[in-house]
């Protein structure tokens, strides 16, 4: 029987893990409240408007969560410069040839369901890096369009930074439309992300699922040279 010796690597530092879960909660809350803002529930109520504020509350939660989401994102960018090698900003830029080879490798495993070869990467695999880079762009887009719309009803300096997006995109309607479409990116991303984490844990057995809780990953020893 072949014996695979495994080494435990501390990959995700505490700030990365905290960021991940704060982000997960924020995205969930933002998608749910955002969807409700777009298509509010039908209420047949004969009460006066002054007795209710549920829709106002939904919007308030959306806005507050958006601020948390934004600063959490800013914190992650900072950690991209201060964190360990797995958290560094350059993980998310896939320019090296070896990274593209790995992307093809991962696609083979994910889509063609080829037998998993142990990957070079210990942190994010190259395909995940590319995907997260795209999600960062989506975060930025969602912050810009969201705060851009919010700017008109706020004196706070942060939304004002994004007020210029409204004239650029041709008015609030277009901004809202794009903001709403981008929400679906987050929803679909979340589905696939959660599934693939389960999948990789399932076929690789490197403990990727628990790594975002404890920070440890379990890597085959001969691959753990780098």
């Amino acid at each position: 029987m072949e014996t695979v010796s495994i080494r435990r690597y501390y990959v995700w530092q505490l700030p990365v893990r905290v960021y991940h879960w704060v982000n997960a909660v924020c995205v969930t809350v933002l998608c749910v409240t955002g969807y409700l803002i777009g298509s509010p529930l039908a209420l047949q109520s004969s009460s006066e408007a002054s007795f209710g504020y549920w829709f106002g509350t939904v919007r308030f939660v959306h806005f507050v969560t958006a601020f948390v989401f934004f600063f959490n994102f800013v914190g992650r960018i900072y950690w991209g410069f201060a964190g360990n090698s797995y958290a560094r900003w350059n993980n998310f830029l896939v320019f090296r040839k070896s990274q593209w080879r790995e992307i093809i490798e991962v696609l083979k495993v994910d889509i063609l369901q080829a037998k998993a070869q142990p990957l070079e990467s210990i942190g994010h695999n190259a395909l995940a890096s590319l995907t997260y880079f795209l999600t960062f762009i989506a975060f930025l887009f969602q912050c810009m369009t969201g705060f851009g719309m919010y700017a008109a009803m706020s004196d706070s300096w942060l939304p004002q930074l994004f007020a210029w997006i409204v004239p650029v995109m041709g008015g609030d309607f277009a901004v809202r439309q794009w903001h709403h479409m981008a929400m679906w990116f987050f929803i679909i991303f979340s589905f696939i992300h959660v599934y693939l984490v389960f999948y990789h844990d399932y076929v690789e057995g490197r403990g990727v699922l628990s790594s975002m809780v404890g920070g440890w990953k379990f890597i085959e020893k001969e691959k753990g040279k780098n």
Binding site: S47, S50, Y53, W54, F55, A152, V166, D172
Partner: peptide, 27 residues
Amino acid sequence: GLGRPKAFYSRRVHDTCYRRPNYDAGL
């Protein structure tokens, strides 16, 4: 930003709408 006089175009129709309380109450 769109070259409109702020005196008249700085607020949404929604923000000054007399039906706004119904919106906030989800009605």
